[in-house]
């Protein structure tokens, strides 16, 4: 029964992925038909405009939304296991905002000096910011045991970082403002194939390493003492979780800016869908689910008020935040029932 549910869950995710992928390719300011898109993808296309739209704009954007959404959800799941806190996530804990701040600072400083930054540099800056925020959160979590306080500290950190980022953006050179402003609100637009190569490399490598964390994560769900008694080297495990979750969310921030609530909402939706919290199932499910979630949200961001585009965080917040509220309410009622 369990295996059928798992299989059905993954099947559903794949179907949703294909569906939202197709919708993302065909809809937009110039609508295409499925045969049009197929023609482009198979190379039998004769319309250069359609080819450019699909290959240079929509396809890279689709891949970015999928990979980054998946990365964000996996990062969120890692953080939830690590802090034993169901509403932990890169955005809620201020890690995304920390990454955003360092990227904005690096961008503005380098642009002023006339240096053009490669994507790798942005990822590195973002990773540094993510680790700094993570350090703060860890320090704080050592001092307070309450999960609510931890989240509050993360949210506050997020606000501080966002405020400084706004300051930096405001005083940046005019020519850069438009781009920077868009990015600091969160968006998958303007992704190049070069970006795709880099994010694919980072996300794939991180995911392979994360797969090996599935086992210790499972042991860790019973708490530190039992994890250690199950043979987990806690120090190495902690370092791995911190580095991987930071790297994954840093990668997202470097390419798409801050994307809110995906990291909290998607792993939780997946746990409900699969009826388990086993990392071996939830890790891949979160990746797929996060990808689908961001594809769908990006589609809405593009088409609802077209030609005006919404920031991706606006849409993910609308669908993600209620999930967080639902988690909290359900936990409370469960606690009262017990």
């Amino acid at each position: 029964m369990k295996t059928t549910r798992t299989a059905a869950g993954f099947l559903l995710l794949v179907i949703l992925l294909v569906l939202s992928g197709i919708l993302n390719l065909i809809s937009g300011s110039s609508s295409l038909t499925v045969p049009d898109v197929l023609a482009v993808l198979t190379g039998s296309n004769t319309d250069p405009a359609a080819g450019a739209i699909v290959l240079q704009i929509r396809l890279p954007r689709l891949i970015a939304a999928f990979l980054l959404g998946g990365a964000l959800s996996v990062s969120g799941f890692l953080l939830q296991c690590f802090f034993g806190n169901p509403i932990a996530g890169p955005f809620v804990l201020g890690i995304s905002s920390g990454a955003k701040l360092t990227v904005a600072l690096t961008l503005v400083l380098c642009l002023r000096q006339g240096i053009v930054l490669g994507s790798w540099m942005l990822v590195a800056a973002s990773f540094a910011g993510a680790l700094l925020s993570m350090g703060w959160v860890l320090l704080f979590s050592g001092k307070v045991r309450s999960m609510a306080l931890l989240i509050v500290s993360g949210v506050m950190l997020g606000y501080i970082c966002s405020a400084i980022t706004e300051l930096v953006v405001t005083f940046a050179d005019e020519s850069n403002i438009v781009n920077l402003h868009n990015w600091s609100q969160g968006s998958f637009s303007g992704t190049s194939w070069q970006d795709i190569r880099i994010m694919t490399a980072i996300v794939t490598a991180s995911l392979i390493l994360t797969a090996f964390l599935a086992k210790p994560l499972g042991a860790y769900q019973l708490g530190e003492a039992y994890a250690e008694n199950s043979g987990v080297n806690l120090r190495r495990f902690r370092a791995a979780v911190i580095l991987l979750s930071s790297l994954l969310s840093a990668c997202v921030t470097a390419f798409a800016g801050p994307v809110s609530f995906v990291g909290v909402a998607v792993p939780h939706l997946m746990k409900s869908l699969f009826g388990t919290a086993k990392p071996l199932i939830i890790l891949p499910a979160s990746f797929l689910g996060g990808g689908v979630f961001c594809l769908a949200c990006d589609l809405l961001a593009r088409i609802v008020f077209a030609p005006t585009e919404l920031s991706i965080s606006t849409v993910t917040a609308i669908f993600g935040a209620p999930v967080v509220i639902w988690i909290l309410v359900r936990r409370q009622t469960r606690k009262e029932a017990a």
Partner: peptide, 9 residues
Amino acid sequence: YPYTGRLGI
């Protein structure tokens, strides 16, 4: 867990 392989199956 201590008896299972890398993926804990």
